[in-house]
Nucleic acid binder design. Structure first.
Lengths: 189, 189
DNA sequence: ACCTGAACACCGTTCAAGT
DNA sequence: ACCTGAACACCGTTCAAGT
């Protein structure tokens, strides 16, 4: 490292950053799976000594959490306007892709993946749609957890197509909608 | 080891067996999680040298697969007679407990857990119930994958109660039942 | 047949320096 | 501030013996 202007992010190709480390980690996951990610291997790929990584991540766990958060951030999209069932289907469809991506490697960290900011935003969007549909808050929260469980399960099982995911989601939404029509859980308009 | 009668399973407390190894491994998972399971730690707990374990399992992966298969075998129960919705609910409820058990440690190996004999038996039972309900084979298989995804997802997310699991399952079954009533997927009686 | 040792090629991480 | 070395306490697993 020959150094650049002071007080700036190093612009040299060998300059480390959280983003550059995560890029390499992501490539390793895609190539050889999550278990192939080691501090030493990342360091070698970045042409740096292993301990250099500890300037950017406290430990390996923090690095992997950041990797999962990055994946969920990328793919999750805000919901569009329109009928509540279609909005939910679009939202959960992209969540399924995010959670099942990177060769299912993230599946191994599902419990941790479910507390990332990306998933929190997803929940806020989903709860909003359910409120729009007429669910009172508590019933909406319950319906949301059920919908997310289905989505996570489909991502984890992995074998299914997007079409089959949509089929099952429609059946689940049918059940929720007919409950909504029965008035038991409907909020005042 | 002072040896016992020949051609028998060793009865001595220090005699190894697949079952004894899996028992200790299960205890380690429950105490400190799946990542705490190491060949060396199991060996130490069994008062044996690490390489002794390789007489019973080809490698660590095979040992962990056997551990997961054992957990799913224990908890999965055959379905009782009665209304198809109740039979499915009982079957999937016990599956949820099996997959979510041992402190969620098994969740990390979900994709592998889904190809164990216990889950295959679960699928056969579930498909039988759906056929009884009137689903023609292809529609029944599709409905089964959706139901299992929901169950697996609920087990993986983990936070939910059995009551909430049952609520979501009822909504999903509502949707499947109303599809069945619409005749599109119904088999000839 | 079943278990022992020693050894090899890996890990994550602490600690003390270097510049 | 950022990276280097060396070292420590672990891994899974191979290989050659022991009894």
């Amino acid at each position: 490292m020959t150094g650049g202007a002071d007080k700036r992010e190093p612009a040299r190709p060998s300059g480390l950053s959280r983003e550059r480390i995560l890029e390499v980690a992501s490539a390793v996951v895609e190539a050889d799976g999550l278990e192939a990610v080691s501090m030493r291997r990342l360091a070698q790929a970045l042409d740096v000594w292993p301990m250099a990584l500890y300037r950017y991540f406290a430990d390996k766990d923090e690095l992997l959490d950041a990797l999962v958060a990055r994946a969920t951030d990328e793919v999750t999209r805000p919901a569009a306007r329109g009928p509540w069932r279609e909005r939910l289907a679009a939202l959960l469809g992209s969540a399924r892709e995010a959670l099942g991506g990177e060769g299912l490697g993230l599946g191994a960290r599902l419990p941790r993946a479910l507390v990332t900011p990306g998933v929190a935003r997803l929940a806020r969007d989903g709860l909003g749609i359910l409120a729009d549909a007429g669910f009172e808050p508590e019933a909406g929260a319950r319906a949301w957890r059920v919908l997310l469980s289905y989505t996570v399960g489909f991502a984890a099982v992995g074998g299914g197509e997007g079409e089959e995911f949509a089929y099952g989601l429609e059946r689940l939404l049918d059940g929720l909608e007919s409950e909504l029509r029965s008035e038991a859980v409907r909020s005042a308009p």
